[in-house]
Design a protein around this nucleic acid. Sequence first.
DNA 1: TCTGGGGTCCTAGGACCC
DNA 2: TCTGGGGTCCTAGGACCC
Length: 428
Amino acid sequence: MRRIALIDVNNFYVSCERVFQPRLEGVPVVVLSNNDGCVVARSAEVKALGVAMGMPWHKMQDIAKEHGILALSSNYTLYGDMSRRVMNVLAQFSPDQEVYSIDECFLDLTPQPHVEPTELGKTIRQRVRQWVGVPVSVGVGPTKTLAKLANHVAKKRTEWRGVCDLGTLAEPALDDLLGSIGVREVWGVGHRTEAKLLEQGIKTVADLRAMDAAAVRRGYSVVLERTVRELRGTACIALEDHAPNKQQIICSRSFGAPVYSVEELSESVRAYMSRAAEKMRRQGSIAGAIGLWIETNRFRPQDAQHHPAVTVSLPEATDDTLRLVAMATRLLRRIHRSGYRYVKAGVVLLELRERGVRQGSLFDTTPVLDSKRDRLMSVLDQASQKWGRGTIAPGSAGLAAPRAWAMKRGSMTPAYTTRWDELVTVKA
DNA sequence: TCTGGGGTCCTAGGACCC
DNA sequence: TCTGGGGTCCTAGGACCC
């Protein structure tokens, strides 16, 4: 029997902010998405008020005022750095770690049969709290799906004190527990599948676990069939200890203010494509195709709507920002129509493959190893790493002066951990 | 006035081939 | 009179995740 642990940080973004602003402790706090649009993290106090994940901030002004909810703009530089610290601490507890998202990871405990999971969980909680400053919950089970579920129990049922090992429960007790949890809490069951299950009278995790796997495959999908098997303790989802390269890379943003002209749109598209290309080079890939789209505001029925999108194959796969930006700009002119009030743009790099296997085009005159271009790209990446994104970008992709499309971030905390001039000062 | 951003996997259906 | 069927590839869209 495998033993898998799933560790995640409670209210991750809020907890990160509280490390550097202890006065936020006990205060209802939310962290907002880009452009301060909607809620992406809530403190326990806010959850208790019934504020849902993803709620638009402008729609909750009344409740915010009434309860003194404090809103912060998201500070992804800070969260990324804190995440790295948490993952480094957790890696000490098992060599088999899968970093699953910014705030959670799986650890395989199977090769350490002498370790008692609940004791280990307590140690993990204590150490991450002391070394990084954030609270975590620990769930343990024989499959990833059960570890996720155990983590849910650890967090929601106070009697478990933040650590739940389902392996400690005998079958009747386990069935009781699963019978008290709604099917929606299962990893892989979204609101659509939940609705369909409820129609069939499948309400709890115990109900779902008892379903016939073949019938689930026929009536739902192979995905849900795997979930059912995992709930019964049969591993169907492997632990992936090194992250595979991305198959596609997207960069898209809503604008801080509406944009009409192709020139302004073009600036944002150049910036997004530069960013996407940088990410792609970091994983050593080249793109065989690209996509681009722009959008008007779907939430304003009084606006004329236009949501054009286009994807094209490139004559030759490349990781060259200049070529990619040039192509994206050309595509933009093709799909843009004047008179529309655009609020968002995005680019995507597709058909990614390893740089080493790039194929020269029959008609292309540049050598496959274009060392001058490569050196230029590498300078671009180093500058971006050292001085921040957008320091250098082709065709002045949105520098210096504030642009309408630039993100709105009304109340962002400093880069406490990544800039010397924004470190916290401790007074004696 | 104000509604995130970045991913994965699976399936159905169309185009095309022999 | 009788008008196929199996395979592959691609794309769009759905569902889900954090």
